[in-house]
Amino acid sequence: DCSRLFDNDLPDGWEERRTASGRIQYLNHITRTTQWERPTRPASEYSSP
């Protein structure tokens, strides 16, 4: 389970979450994917897998 964190500095379409182990990951709501690196572009600029 991940708990949500609120971060207004993220590009549109992204959400920051913390894993059960405390690591931060980023959820792309457009492609429904996650990544460990902080995003720098809006989620819509990433392609679906």
Rank of each mutant, 00 (worst) to 15 (best):
G13Q: 03
E37T: 02
S47E: 03
Y46Q: 10
R38V: 05
T33C: 15
H29V: 13
Q25D: 03
R32V: 09
I24L: 09
Y46N: 08
Q35K: 05
L27W: 12
L5H: 11
W36K: 04
G13N: 00
G13K: 02
A20E: 14
A43Y: 06
D9K: 14
A20M: 05
R23S: 10
R4C: 14
A20S: 11
D7Q: 05
G13S: 01
N28A: 01
W14S: 03
Y46E: 13
Q35G: 02
S21W: 05
P11N: 01
L27F: 08
N8M: 08
L5N: 15
R41T: 15
R38C: 07
P39G: 02
Q35S: 11
L27M: 08
R41G: 15
N8K: 11
R18H: 10
R38F: 03
E45I: 04
W36C: 10
L10D: 00
D9R: 13
Y26F: 09
D1I: 08
I30D: 06
R32I: 01
L10T: 03
S47N: 07
S21V: 10
E45G: 06
Y46F: 13
D12N: 13
W36T: 15
Y26N: 04
Y26D: 04
I30L: 09
S3W: 00
R17G: 07
T31E: 14
C2K: 13
D12A: 13
A20T: 13
N28E: 02
E16V: 10
D9S: 14
L27G: 02
Y26G: 03
T19A: 06
R32M: 15
R4S: 13
I30Y: 06
R18Y: 05
R38W: 01
E16I: 13
W36A: 07
L5D: 06
W14M: 01
Y26M: 00
F6Y: 08
T31I: 03
Q25C: 13
I24K: 11
E15T: 13
R38S: 03
C2Y: 14
I24D: 05
R38L: 03
D12M: 04
A43D: 09
P39M: 00
I24W: 05
R38D: 00
L27V: 12
S21Q: 10
D1T: 02
Q35T: 08
S21L: 06
R32L: 14
Q25H: 08
T33Y: 03
I24G: 02
T34S: 05
C2P: 12
E37H: 04
A20R: 10
D7G: 10
L10E: 01
D9E: 10
S48Y: 06
A20F: 01
L10N: 01
T31G: 09
D9A: 13
A43W: 07
I24M: 03
C2H: 05
W36Q: 07
I24H: 00
N28W: 00
Y26K: 00
E16M: 15
H29N: 06
W14H: 06
P11V: 02
N8H: 03
I24N: 04
P11S: 03
D9P: 09
Q25P: 00
E37D: 06
D7F: 05
A43P: 10
R4V: 13
Y46H: 11
N28S: 04
S48G: 12
R17S: 11
E37Q: 00
S3T: 15
S48Q: 07
H29T: 15
T19H: 04
E15D: 07
R38T: 00
R18P: 11
G13D: 03
R4G: 11
R17D: 06
S3A: 11
D1C: 02
P11H: 02
W36I: 01
G13T: 00
S44I: 09
D1G: 00
D9T: 14
E45A: 11
Y46A: 09
Q25L: 06
C2R: 05
N8D: 09
W14Y: 01
P42D: 02
P39C: 00
A20Y: 03
H29R: 15
E15L: 07
T40P: 09
L10A: 02
W14T: 02
T40G: 12
W36S: 07
S44V: 14
G13P: 00
L10C: 03
R23F: 04
S21D: 14
T33V: 12
A20C: 10
I30G: 11
D12I: 11
R38M: 03
T31N: 14
R38I: 04
E37Y: 01
W36Y: 11
A20H: 06
T34W: 03
D7H: 03
S44P: 02
I24Y: 02
Y46D: 12
Y46G: 12
N28P: 00
Y26P: 03
T34V: 08
C2A: 06
F6S: 12
A43I: 06
F6G: 14
E37P: 01
T19V: 07
T40V: 13
G22Q: 01
S44D: 13
R4H: 15
R18S: 11
L5P: 08
E45Y: 07
A43H: 07
R17I: 06
R4K: 11
L10F: 01
A43R: 09
W36M: 13
E16R: 05
T19D: 12
R32Q: 15
G22V: 00
H29F: 07
G13H: 04
G22L: 01
R23C: 08
S3I: 15
R17N: 12
S21G: 14
E16P: 11
F6C: 14
Y26Q: 02
D1A: 01
R17A: 08
Y46T: 13
P39H: 09
H29E: 08
E45L: 06
S48R: 09
G22M: 02
D12F: 09
R32T: 12
W36E: 15
G13Y: 04
F6I: 10
S44G: 14
T34G: 05
D7K: 11
R18V: 12
Q25I: 15
D7I: 14
Q35R: 04
T34A: 04
T19S: 11
E15R: 04
D9H: 09
D7C: 06
R23H: 04
T34C: 09
D12R: 12
I24V: 10
N8P: 12
P11T: 06
C2F: 15
T33H: 13
T19P: 09
T40C: 14
A20N: 13
D12C: 08
C2Q: 13
S3M: 15
F6M: 10
I30S: 09
A43L: 07
T19I: 08
T33L: 13
G22T: 02
P42Q: 08
S44E: 12
Y26L: 00
T40N: 14
R23A: 08
R32P: 07
L5S: 12
Q25R: 03
S44M: 14
N8I: 03
R4M: 10
R18Q: 05
G13F: 00
E37M: 07
T19W: 02
R17T: 12
E37K: 08
A43F: 01
S21N: 08
I30M: 07
W14K: 03
